[in-house]
Write a protein that binds this DNA or RNA. Structure first.
Lengths: 212, 212
DNA sequence: ATAGGCAGTACCCGAATGGGTAATAGAATA
DNA sequence: TATTCTATTACCCATTCGGGTACTGCCTAT
């Protein structure tokens, strides 16, 4: 089994050279390209199909976030890891949405960089501990049903509404009358500070009162 | 610095005993409690304040997902790790939303369980590689408006609907008549394979046709 | 025991919604 | 050029929805 092919995009000269030194013989990877910008992106991912790519985000011309999208369109099988100083939600989630398979920060030790690349090439999803925390927080910072003082019954009914049930269907599902459903939904709308079903659904999903 | 206190909740007798053996002297943790169900939850997290907790999800009486919520309300500083066979989105995300700080699967090797607990006690967010993948996928699996062949106009109108606008308000915002709005929404419902506004809103948000 | 919160029921009424059908004009495309 | 796609307007009609109000139990907490 040959070594995984790896391409590197990093505009900081010194850091790139350090990484080049790190990723030689001993590393277990074959560094087949190392670039200071994304001008050759089409060429690199057109003529060849590297197994792995490590991208800096803050690059001249095009950001790594835009690049990962292009790379994934050209070579869906190439596994891409972001390697950056940025730890803000915006960049993290955009990178992931655009197809990044890993996200490590630049304060990562050389040994851990190698480990992350190994994990990446094995189909894993390496990320710095701080990034993992951010991602968990992202799910948690939802306001939750309890914050709106919805009763259990109301939560049930809201969930059914979100899942596309009409008032009539909800009544049947809950074995209550249509009028009771109406009453509950009226209360729900009041509690959520909305005034129609569509708005309630949007709020329920955005605030994660009902699982997405 | 003393060892972190750890409590364990696992209903499988044999597995619990194995874990008890694993978490002795050498492990670096002080196992201060080990339970087969959550009946003593109030007591454990009322009288004492363990630093760490490891929870099975499928437990008699109460699930670990409900338990983590209660634990976090009582002892917000206690770091909680799920330890389970379940790898479905629903359970993973509910656990995280309820406050879990880590999520590892039961096929994890003893050594890696110890490492995960160490990471947990250091404020990290240990998770099995498969879980990390699932979470990344969760962000990516946006199907986008283009997948539903929505026209730009339809996307605009859907966005307004999701943001709580009534048909009438949409008509005013778009400077078109109410009938035209109706027509567009009818087309949208057809394309999204739904048959009412609430369902369309749910689909738009879940499929990320409209940003959450 | 008694007040308040919650679930359920019931009724009325007007407005909003969803489905069907049809027609026109401009833009894009074949 | 002919055809398709898109946006637009229009009408009809049945159903659903949202708001208001009022009453009955049940359970909990004061």
């Amino acid at each position: 089994m040959s070594k995984p092919n790896l391409v590197l995009f990093e505009d900081n000269e010194r850091l790139r050279q350090s990484l080049e030194l790190l990723l030689t013989d001993m590393s277990g990877f074959e560094l087949v390209g190392s670039y200071g910008d994304f001008t050759l992106l089409d060429e690199v991912f057109g003529k060849t199909s590297p197994n792995l790519a490590m991208l800096d985000i803050d690059m001249p011309g095009m950001t790594g976030i835009a690049a990962v999208k292009i790379i994934k369109e050209r070579c869906p099988l190439c596994r891409v890891m972001m390697f950056t100083v940025f730890d803000d939600d915006e960049r993290i989630f955009q990178s992931i949405c655009n197809g990044a398979d890993g996200y490590i920060l630049k304060n990562t030790s050389p040994l851990k960089i190698i480990k992350a690349l190994q994990e990446l090439s094995e189909g894993g999803t390496p990320m710095s501990p701080f990034i993992a925390q951010k991602i968990f927080q992202h799910f948690r910072q939802s306001s939750k049903a309890s914050d709106h003082n919805l009763t259990l019954r109301e939560q049930d009914i809201l969930k059914l509404l979100v899942n596309g049930h009409s008032y009539k269907m909800i009544a049947a599902d809950c074995h209550i009358t249509l009028d009771t459903v109406k009453k509950h939904l009226k209360n729900i709308y009041t509690k959520l500070h909305v005034n129609c079903g569509t708005e309630a659904v949007a709020k329920a999903l955005r605030d994660r009162i009902v699982p997405i």
